[in-house]
């Protein structure tokens, strides 16, 4: 089902904490930049309910300043054909 990638910006000085927080969430893969305060996050959730839950968890992360989407994919089955 949905696969998304994001650019995640940590709060000031919180990159390590953000990587740890994101890695602790299910359905998340994290690629930290080695020279700047940016993290790439790839999410792959099995269904809409899990996706909604993950979105809520992401919204609640204290170490996260902002998330910008970079890629989106959604399986066709649930789109109504």
């Amino acid at each position: 089902m949905p696969i998304f990638s994001y650019l995640a910006m940590p709060k000031s000085g919180a990159k390590e904490a953000l990587c740890a927080d994101l890695a602790a969430l299910s359905h998340c893969e994290v690629i930290p930049s080695d020279n700047q305060e940016i993290v790439v996050l790839v999410t792959d959730t099995p269904d809409e309910t899990t996706e909604d839950k993950l979105q809520k968890s992401l919204n609640n992360l204290q170490s996260l300043q902002s998330l910008s989407l970079a890629f989106g994919y959604d399986d066709q089955e649930k789109q109504g054909r």
């Binding site: 696969i3 990638s5 650019l7 893969e29 940016i38 790439v40 790839v42 792959d44 970079a70 890629f71």
Partner: peptide, 14 residues
Amino acid sequence: FLKYAAASSAVATA
């Protein structure tokens, strides 16, 4: 492949 594409897209954007 899609996850690769997702990650590469974010890396390119960054």
